[in-house]
Amino acid sequence: MHPARSNGGMTNIATLTLNPTIDVAYEVDRMFHTRKMRTKSEFYSPGGGGINVARVFVRLGGNARSYYMAGGATGDALDGLLDLHQLVHNRIHIAGHTRVASAVLELESGKEYRFVPPGPTIQPAEWQACLDQLESAQCNFMVLSGSLPPGMPDDFYGQVVALMRRRNIPVVLDSSGPGLKGGLEAGGVFLVKPSIGELRQLTGLELAIPDEIADAASEIVRSGRAAHVAVTMGHQGAILASADGPLFLPAAPIEAKSAVGAGDSFLSAMLFAISIGWEMGEAFRFGIAAGAAAVMSPGHDLARPSDIERLYQRTPQIS
């Protein structure tokens, strides 16, 4: 069954992207230093965690509104790309220029090279304006996805979690470093999706085997910081920890060609399935299929519904 057919497209989420990007993808025959390299093709996409989540969510049949901070000429260009993708969006204006990230596929080797700037420094008045906009956000879920840009307080996501808790809006968190730690410290997050590397950084533990990973994820649940913890582990699959114990699922059987957008596609599809009433384990399985769908082709696109549905049928069922 395709989940989009279950609800008539009435699901409504909002996503927050503090450090969005214009994602540029190129292909070259071979990488050389110094020498000018002529590209075979180029693709421009609006990017950053929350924007990517919104793009996949809308493809699946849901409604998504993107909140994002953007500035300068590149911020205007990002607005145009969001319009091209027909995404509903609310821009929080900042003085700094929105960053441009690049992915270059070397055709000879099949290797992908990614260049990601840190992004503009955010001023206190700018991040306060962001909080002010979120006060009136209307949604069934608020998705906080992506890194904190320079200048943001470490507890900014925690402030948003507390704000949404007062408004009875469940929060989904997908960040790293201070963003992940600060967001969880407020407690009461509905779903958090760290990668295995992000979980290791958060806990300071080696987490070498699945049981250790499951224990670390379950501790986040036991502490009340999040109700559900989905840990993505690339080709090794993923682990979901909830109050009723951990669940492990292997990765969908595909040949990965890119890492761009896999986590965002996973999170978006899992949340879409949850929001239309799927049981948590099956939503988790649908997310795994979407993560695999995103990495099947070089990194200028995100998961597409037809690929997600096909891979969902091939993803091992929950026993």
Rank of each mutant, 00 (worst) to 15 (best):
R5W: 12
R5K: 14
M10Y: 03
I13G: 01
I13E: 01
T15Q: 05
L16D: 00
N19K: 07
N19I: 04
P20T: 09
P20N: 07
P20C: 08
T21C: 13
D23F: 09
V24E: 15
E27H: 11
V28W: 10
M31W: 14
F32G: 03
T39A: 12
F43G: 08
Y44S: 07
P46Y: 06
G47E: 08
G48N: 07
V53P: 02
V53N: 03
A54C: 08
G62I: 01
R65W: 03
S66I: 08
M69S: 07
A70Y: 03
G71N: 10
G71K: 10
L81Q: 06
L81V: 04
L84M: 14
H85C: 14
L87T: 02
V88M: 00
H89I: 06
H89R: 09
H89T: 10
H89D: 07
R91H: 07
R91C: 03
A95F: 12
G96D: 11
H97W: 03
T98V: 11
T98P: 06
V100G: 03
V100T: 14
V104Y: 10
V104D: 03
L107I: 15
E108Y: 06
G110S: 11
G110R: 14
K111P: 09
R114N: 10
V116A: 14
T121K: 13
A125W: 01
L131T: 04
D132A: 07
D132V: 02
S136V: 01
A137G: 01
C139G: 05
V143C: 09
V143K: 04
M152E: 03
D154W: 02
V161Y: 01
R165N: 05
R165Q: 10
R166C: 00
R167M: 00
R167Y: 00
I169K: 00
V171M: 04
G179E: 05
G179M: 06
K181E: 12
G183P: 01
G183Q: 06
A186T: 06
A186S: 13
G188T: 08
V189P: 02
L191E: 03
V192N: 04
V192P: 00
K193H: 05
K193G: 02
K193V: 02
R200H: 12
E206I: 10
A208I: 05
I209F: 11
I209V: 11
P210Y: 08
E212G: 06
E212D: 13
D215I: 09
A217P: 03
A217Y: 07
E219H: 15
I220N: 03
R225M: 12
H228C: 05
A230F: 10
T232S: 15
G234W: 06
L249D: 05
P250N: 09
A251S: 14
I254A: 08
S258E: 13
G263S: 15
D264W: 12
L267Y: 10
L271K: 07
F272H: 11
I276E: 12
F286P: 08
G287F: 00
A290G: 02
G291R: 06
V295Q: 07
G299R: 06
H300C: 11
A303M: 04
R304T: 05
E309K: 04
R310N: 09
Y312G: 02
R314C: 04
I318P: 04
